[in-house]
Design a protein around this nucleic acid. Structure first.
Lengths: 351, 351
DNA sequence: ATGTGGTTCGGAAACGATACCAGAAGTAAA
DNA sequence: TTTACTTCTGGTATCGTTTCCGAACCACAT
């Protein structure tokens, strides 16, 4: 099976290879009839230009990369799918790469850029701002999207899409407070000092402070797990510790739905009811939350819209149509079965 | 930011470019010291060979593709991760592409092969055998892996990895029969006549026949959903129909865990208990099954092992180390909370 | 006739790497 | 010293494409 090349097409058409190239690439300097003839032959022969040769010659390889930290992100599939659609619409190629740790990501990005001559990078589901200055030195546009994980604050030398984790977290805690809860435990993330989870934790603290409710450190649990902090296992383990601690509480706010699922399981196994005895709230809005028993009260992120915007943002940057943008999406508090009024019996005087 | 090329390295080292190439590619014909010196300079300069140029020249572009049908497959993330590890170990590149329909897949594969000069393709989570003859005509090795979805029968002009869906399905139904169930409903898949779901359905029928239990068509539900048959929504909808049908049953076998989750939810909303009133069994062994309430009885597929083997199989084919292999993995019946003895009260005489 | 300008085209030089080939240098045997 | 062989090296053609440059052609004004 020999490759069919642009030369073959030229020969079959009785034209020069430049003419074929012009036909393929929509160059203006070509006769309309010639172009149609060439295109017909190309269709007939099933010729497809060799991408390596193209990219080698072109200064602009039509290719972007998507780097994913934390592939267990439940939105992963749909996000990828949406980005892919955008990429195809632009006639670009896309490479995906999974990165294990924050340290890896820069190396991987660098390697990809040189090897594949990328035009842009999307960073999915991580907190990469540490390296954003370094990345900025490469002259490749990049967009962070903390879809399903959160955003960060600080100086903006990059583009990103996110929800306002701080505010949304506050929203959820306020909702629990409005239900009458005063002793609210939180399962947060503590593996990275500047992480998403910390923003959600800050939102929790702010909400309590605003109501002048004392923050009890014994109700704050932080998952320490570099690889995959937002797992059901971790939620389960933290909730077991919480239940065994003897500290009283009437609600648990897990800063990710997967954590919440683990929390629910632990509470169930302890023989307590949700929400009659303890309310559980999550964050993210994963699909299973609707089918879980009890259905999960959560903050639902507009994942599809975020993914689409992320891709469009990158292409705008590539085409020089805009500078850095920081788009914050509104999230929605979805009230479901897992939260209700507090059970006074769960409260006892502290020593 | 200028690209740094093999010429720059050669100049800096005071050697010819062939020597640098030899150093990079572990050719035998090079002095050890020279090689070390070149490699040192390469490290210092951070030089990375341009992949397009390499692939253009080489007859063998070190690149494989992974085509994914049904990106919602819950194992997707871990499977990709494992395959990626194998690919990196072989110093190959990997492109991933999502395909919408069975019709798309061949076109996509063809285009990829020519454009990127692939050495091999892995088809994930689909039933592609229709096209396997056509694919065989391309001289590119490919492996089907029905990880999380099943396998097929028929003539073997390809390699694949799978579990024995027919036998495993029988295993589950036998388990339910052993518990005492006689009226077992099944939520299967009916969108594709030759699909995975059909194999599992056949296993169900076989198990019943072996015990001489009459098959009641009113207990057989087939999801018709090209895009994503194995969804919680579909399980939910089918179970609602089943419950509303007035036909009696004491157990439901959903041929995918996601379907089972939807089934559980519908049963719960109907005010029935699992497993006291109705037993529910799934298939696949997704993570959430362990944290769901009730915990899901299921057939657990050895996903990690399957993914690893799939990748290794492809590389063996590429390297000509083996011919077509069809590896069937043993799956495990995991008995959990969602199944128990039948409740006689759920049975009533049929008209 | 000659010059001018605009289309449309083909030739040829890149792009960055690999691989073949020939030759230099070194070693061992005659 | 010559021959033969091994080990190592550099030059160069080549992969398939794009792009620059110049040429051919036509129309039209000079």
């Amino acid at each position: 099976m020999e490759e069919i090349t642009i030369k073959d097409i030229a020969r079959r058409c009785g034209v020069g290879i430049s003419t074929v190239s012009r036909a393929i690439n929509n160059h203006p300097d070509i006769n309309t009839e010639t172009k149609q003839m060439v295109m017909r032959v190309i269709r007939e022969t099933g010729y497809i230009p060799n991408n390596s040769a193209r990219n080698l010659k072109r200064t602009d390889a039509r290719c972007i990369a998507v780097l994913i930290k934390g592939i267990t992100n439940p939105f992963f599939s749909s996000v990828i799918q949406i980005i892919e659609t955008q990429v195809q619409k632009k006639k670009y190629a896309m490479v995906m790469q999974h990165v294990e740790t924050y340290e890896d990501e820069l190396d991987v990005a660098l390697e990809l850029i040189k090897e594949k001559r990328l035009r842009g990078i999307i960073f999915l589901g991580g907190a990469y701002r540490h390296d954003s200055q370094k990345l900025a030195k490469l002259n490749v546009p990049f967009v962070f999207s903390t879809i399903g994980t959160g955003q960060d604050e600080g100086e903006k030398t990059y583009s990103n899409t996110a929800v306002d984790d701080f505010a949304e977290s506050q929203k959820m805690v306020n909702y629990l407070l409005d239900l009458g809860h005063r002793r609210i435990a939180i399962i947060a993330e503590g593996s990275d000092a500047e992480s998403v989870g910390q923003l959600r934790l800050e939102g929790y603290k702010k909400a309590l402070k605003d109501r002048e409710i004392e923050i009890d450190e014994r109700l704050i649990y932080e998952v320490k797990d570099q690889a995959d902090p937002y797992s059901m296992q971790n939620g389960y383990a933290m909730a077991q510790q919480l239940l065994a601690s003897g500290v009283d509480f009437t609600a648990v706010f897990a800063i990710a739905d997967f954590l919440a699922v683990g929390v629910c399981r632990a509470i169930h196994e302890a023989g307590l009811r949700i929400p009659e005895d303890i309310s559980v709230a999550g964050f993210d809005g994963i699909a299973i939350g609707e089918f879980y028993t009890p259905q999960l009260t959560t903050i639902k992120q507009p994942v599809e819209a975020m993914a689409e915007k992320t891709a469009k943002l990158l292409f705008n940057l590539i085409e020089g149509k805009c500078g850095h943008e920081h788009i914050i999406f509104p999230a929605e508090l979805v009230e479901r079965e897992s939260t209700g009024k507090p059970n006074p019996e769960m409260l006892f005087p502290h020593i």
